[in-house]
């Protein structure tokens, strides 16, 4: 299992990690996010499902899931297991501070048509969107060629002792969330502010949806819809304590050549505590 994280950007472009392409939601759910004691452990579920945090569809593959500790160094996932509907793993919070658990990928994708009108796309299912594959497979003179620079990122956060921010530093690749309010310092009745970045710049107008967990025990999704402001920020009023799923999407046409558009998705799990 590849665990090195030397240069995040390199790992991302190599896209050894791809999140499952699906209409379903992928999520990593910690059992708790705020921990005390000198050496706490925390367990996680990871799955892809329709209902938030209700594993009923596919276990998430863990080979793309990584963790980074309060010192910015990788932390190994322990006791990993994949069941029918969910994967589990543990994290030992051996040092105080905030840990980020994430899965991220970024790379180019392309669509075009052949001379006789057949629609083509790259990368195909199971193909890695690496630069070599792109060069080999995408005809730069293809008819109606559209090249997209895409990114996906999935995160959650846990803290032993006082929250810290080293693990929350942006990689400046794709769509990311950086805190104004610390993601492990969230309370019902207190608004939280987060900044979205696209390739390190404020992502203005990102579409954000926040959904409380437990949707299978109510009739509506109870989605909170927001759009990031000109600083890339959103302010979230948590209606009650609990686990929350956040998804954000951003796209524009300010891509680096040869791409003509860029698109990023970001999802995260947050725990909101009662005051």
């Amino acid at each position: 299992m590849k665990k090195t994280l030397a240069i995040v950007a390199a790992a991302l472009t190599a896209a050894s990690v791809t999140l499952p392409v699906s209409a379903h939601r992928a999520w990593i759910l910690p059992v708790a996010t705020v921990l005390s004691s000198d050496d706490p452990w925390v367990s996680f579920d990871a799955a892809i499902s329709n209902d938030i945090f209700h594993p009923d569809y596919h276990a998430m593959r863990l080979d793309g899931v990584q963790a980074i500790g309060p010192d910015g160094q990788p932390v190994e996932l322990q006791n990993s297991h994949s069941g029918k509907h969910r994967s589990n793993f543990d994290l030992n919070l051996a040092q105080p501070g905030t840990y980020k658990v994430y899965s991220a990928s970024a790379g180019l994708s392309a669509r075009w048509e052949t001379a006789d009108g057949e629609r083509k796309f790259w990368p195909g299912r199971g193909e890695r969107p690496d630069p070599e594959g792109f060069k080999k497979n995408v005809p730069m003179d293809g008819k109606n060629l559209q090249i997209t620079q895409g990114s996906r990122r999935l995160e959650t956060f846990v803290t032993a002792g006082a929250p810290s921010t080293t693990a929350l530093k942006a990689s400046n690749v794709g769509l990311e969330l950086v805190p104004v309010t610390h993601p492990n310092d969230l309370y019902a009745g207190e608004a939280a502010t987060f900044t979205f970045l696209i390739d390190g710049e404020p992502a203005v107008g990102a579409e954000v949806a926040v959904i409380p967990g437990g949707s299978r025990y109510r009739d509506a999704q109870a989605e909170i819809k927001l759009s990031s402001d000109d600083k890339g920020q959103v302010s979230i009023d948590w209606p009650q304590a609990g686990m929350y799923f956040l998804e954000a999407e951003y796209s524009d046409d300010r891509a680096e050549a040869p791409a003509t558009s860029r698109r990023g998705t970001y999802t995260a799990t947050f725990e909101v505590l009662p005051l």
């Binding site: 705020v34 005390s36 002792g161 006082a162 309370y187 505590l273």
Partner: peptide
């Protein structure tokens, strides 16, 4: 949890 937030965690 209130004490933990305001002081204990530090």
């Amino acid at each position: 949890r209130q004490w933990w937030r305001r002081s204990g965690r530090s």
